[in-house]
Amino acid sequence: MSSWQRFAEAFLDWDVIVQYLPAIGSGLIVTVEIAALVVICGIVLGLVLVVLRSYRITVVNWLIIAFVDTLRSVPPLVLILLLYFGMPNIGINMGGFVVVWLVLTLVLAAFAEEIFWAGLLSVDKGQWQAARSTGLGYTQALIYVVMPQAVRMTIPPLTNRTIAITKNTALGTVIGVAEIMNEATTAVSFSGNASPLFVGALAYVMLFVPVVYLGRWIETRFAWRKN
């Protein structure tokens, strides 16, 4: 048997693929659901945190920085396991889907806050001065003049980081969330064939390549280079 035929037998077994395609399809939907929720909630939370941080209230800043630094340092898998297996001990049962969503949202929010903060700091001081000199209050200057510029400047690192974090939905497999990886590995054990894994990989490609292109489109359309 040629190596191509062996490869095809191991990874492209058509019967196995057809049998488990629906399962992986439903896994895809779960992955999309979690990913979409994580992106929206994570970025919104990141924006809220950065606006709060800009008021420079010492205690609040301390809390934000502690939160952000912790969530950027701990591997998401550790947090997922901690929440899923640890929380029931104090009476909170969240279920796998919620745990994965919550952990990835907090991680994305932490990275997004840092990215937005860097953008905020790099907006020219003259923009603040011009805005304040026309009578705009601090919050107004922040919302209407400074943040719009900060966000546009940080779109490239933001889309990058978002794509990286949402791929971690695969970690849901460890706590039984029925997303792509879980369905794929289950199918592999039932069929004794690696083809479902291959289809799983294809499912990720199908899902994230458009996202990558979307990110690049957003970048070219809205992002600025700092002059």
Binding site: G126, A130, A131, S133, T134, G135, G137, Q149, R152
Partner: peptide
């Protein structure tokens, strides 16, 4: 201060227009 700053117009060396 915000109210009074409207009574005082300021023009800057680097213009500081809002680019967006």
């Amino acid at each position: 201060l915000n109210k009074f700053r409207q009574r005082i117009g300021m023009v800057f060396q680097s213009f500081n227009l809002y680019p967006h």
